[in-house]
């Protein structure tokens, strides 16, 4: 109100009420604006600057130009390993996760008795603390004491070294990822319930079979949600950290060392803040490119006609 009396002519185009609304609006939103500047924009921009420095909190920060980036691409043998592992995990785990969630939601969307019970069973694994899931899967996958391998032993079969074999370790982590798809299932199920029944009935009258209806009604009308889950899966997939960190700590033979772990170790185990910022910035660019690519191509495969 003090501001309003300061410049009575400056914003002549605004009525007193509009000016009041602007002030009040900004006032209410100001925590977020401040937070965005302090906790998002400043760190994001400063990380560009830090990525050109050597910084370990002990010796003074030193500007070293492109050296961190050069090192990452030419003298860091782990870098290509973690990039390969991360693309492997994202490339297989994320589409598979979305597909499994979508099919499970479709299964639940038929006239199933006890749907809410099944939905709860599928959802709960995705909300329990990661440390609990990690401990359980560590136990289940254990070579000597795990339940699966003990059943195999009882049957006289060879055991499956889920986490101790470099070929199996990533698929094992993907299996755990598929187990924690509940949130996506719930979102898909809500979307499927919004698809008008009349469309299916009309298609039935026209002689369409189940596959036709799935292909030409269910998939197109769910495609915006498929895209949403794909992008969310992509963002969290590229950041995979906790499960491999707790279950295998990157092993065996670095087969489960992922990009976010490499970044974490550089920052908080080796205290190479500059290099970690360079790694973070590279990740941001790649992830932004992927997201943009999905948005750009979405016009071709995402159907928005069903939006209300």
């Amino acid at each position: 109100m003090a501001v309003a009396s300061l410049s009575p002519k400056g914003s002549a185009r605004m009525t007193k009420g509009e000016r009041h609304n602007l002030m009040m609006g900004l006032l209410f939103v100001s925590p977020w604006i401040l937070g965005f500047l302090i906790w998002t924009l400043y760190p994001l921009l400063s990380s560009v600057f830090f990525s050109f420095t050597r910084y370990d909190f002990i010796t003074p920060m030193k500007f070293i130009g492109m050296q961190n980036y050069v090192e990452i691409f030419t003298r860091d043998p782990r870098f290509y390993t973690v990039v390969y592992n991360t693309f492997y995990y994202v490339g297989i785990g994320v589409p598979l996760g979305v597909a499994v969630a979508f099919l499970m939601a479709n299964l639940l969307n038929t006239d199933v008795k006890g749907r809410s019970v099944f939905r709860a069973i599928f959802y709960v694994p995705s909300i329990i603390p990661a440390i609990c899931s990690a401990m359980v899967w560590l136990f289940i996958f254990n070579n000597q004491y795990g339940v699966i391998n003990n059943v195999l032993r009882a049957l006289g079969r060879p055991i499956i070294p889920f986490l101790s074999n470099p070929t199996l370790s990533k698929p094992s982590l993907i299996l755990i990822h598929l187990w924690a798809q509940g949130t996506a299932v719930v979102i898909f199920l809500a979307a499927l319930q919004d698809v008008p029944r009349s469309l299916y009935e009309a298609a039935t009258v026209d002689g369409a079979n189940g596959w036709h209806k799935f292909r030409h009604i269910t998939i197109p009308l769910s495609s915006p949600i498929i895209m949403y889950n794909l992008i969310m899966g992509l963002i969290s997939g590229f950041q995979t950290f906790l499960m491999p960190y707790l279950l295998t700590n990157g092993g065996p033979m670095a087969s489960t060392e992922f990009y976010a772990m490499h970044l974490y170790r550089n920052a908080f185990e080796l205290f190479r803040m500059g290099k970690a910022c360079a790694l973070a910035w590279l990740m941001f660019v790649v992830l932004a490119a992927f997201t943009l690519f999905i948005f750009r191509t979405s016009a071709r495969w995402v159907f928005y006609g069903g939006e209300k």
Binding site: F36, I38, W39, T40, Y42, P43, L44, S46, S47, F50, Y55, I231, I235, F238, Q239, F241, A260, L263, Y264, A267, F268, M273, A276, C277, A280, W281, M283, F284, L287, A288, T291
Partner: peptide, 16 residues
């Protein structure tokens, strides 16, 4: 801003 991964701001935030 929801699309900005925590992993990206994690290190500069620690520096802050």
């Amino acid at each position: 801003t929801m699309l900005i991964p925590y992993t990206v701001t994690m290190v500069p935030l620690f520096i802050v």
